[in-house]
Design a protein around this nucleic acid. Structure first.
Lengths: 146, 146
DNA sequence: CCGCATCCAAAATGATACTG
DNA sequence: CAGTATCATTTTGGATGCGG
């Protein structure tokens, strides 16, 4: 068997009636969405104009759309810090924090397979090397602390 | 400290010169791409028209585009099984297998946060419950066996 | 400061028919 | 079977202005 990859589908213990990847992508798969979550979670960039400045190419129109979608789907919520001048901070809900393993997966992939783009020295690194204090990584199933 | 979330950015041990999430998304972030990888890896659906049938909404034009992009970026490669009638099977390269943890993250997220869509009984499940024989999950850094 | 509205341009994707 | 060609539609980008 060594070296041969089975041609059988990889099946879950409990059948899916709809594909969870497709379901997740329906929300997370739109352009800019995961970068917005990255800003809020990793960079602590959580205000409208900060996010705009942090993500070159993103426009106010689309940011408004994405924030609405993410809020509608229960991943983020606004905190009104101050009115006049209005200050709003966006934060991840528990559900939103469930996306962190996906973001870590993307970091890990980029750090491994695009090291010349990601690192000055061009050397690949693993997520464990980059974020040792975060291992083991929580899975989406492990509820993040509020 | 309990219950308080630091406002400081979460920094990697080695600084990024470009964001690995954005870098990864440049390839993987286009519509249908991750579902195509899902087909090849999980479902063992690896031929053009099979993939088309497996992913409702995907059209031949876009599938052609995505296969070209994935191939150009080194994630998949064609195996010509037969000519006339032509039969091509697509398979993941090592780099392509590096996306499996991302796919698992999406599965985990969907199975946890959209259980009523994903499962007949509507009960949330973790990736460990669904794929016990695959735990611990490989990270993108752990080279998948060829 | 945080958005929303509008108008238009460009890019990405969808529908359908077709070829080697 | 694997992929193209052509055209329609949707989504996103860019600029600007407005209101709470």
């Amino acid at each position: 068997m060594r070296g041969r990859q089975s041609e059988l589908p990889i099946l879950p213990k409990v059948a899916f009636v709809n594909c969870p990847i497709r379901t997740s992508m329906g929300v997370l798969g739109k352009k800019w969405t995961l970068l917005i979550l990255r800003d809020i979670w990793f960079l602590k960039v959580d205000r409208f104009n900060q996010i705009l400045r942090s993500i070159p190419g993103l426009t106010p129109r689309v940011l408004t759309l994405r924030l609405k979608e993410l809020r509608h789907d229960g991943m983020i919520e606004p905190v009104v810090v101050q009115t006049s001048p209005k200050i709003v901070r966006w934060r991840l809900t528990k559900m939103g924090k469930g996306t962190v393993p996906i973001l870590m997966g993307l970091i890990s992939f980029g750090a491994t397979w695009y090291p010349s783009i990601v690192f000055e020295d061009g050397k690949p690194r693993t997520a464990e090397e980059l974020f040792p204090y975060l291992s083991g990584l929580p899975t989406a199933g492990a509820k993040a602390r509020q």
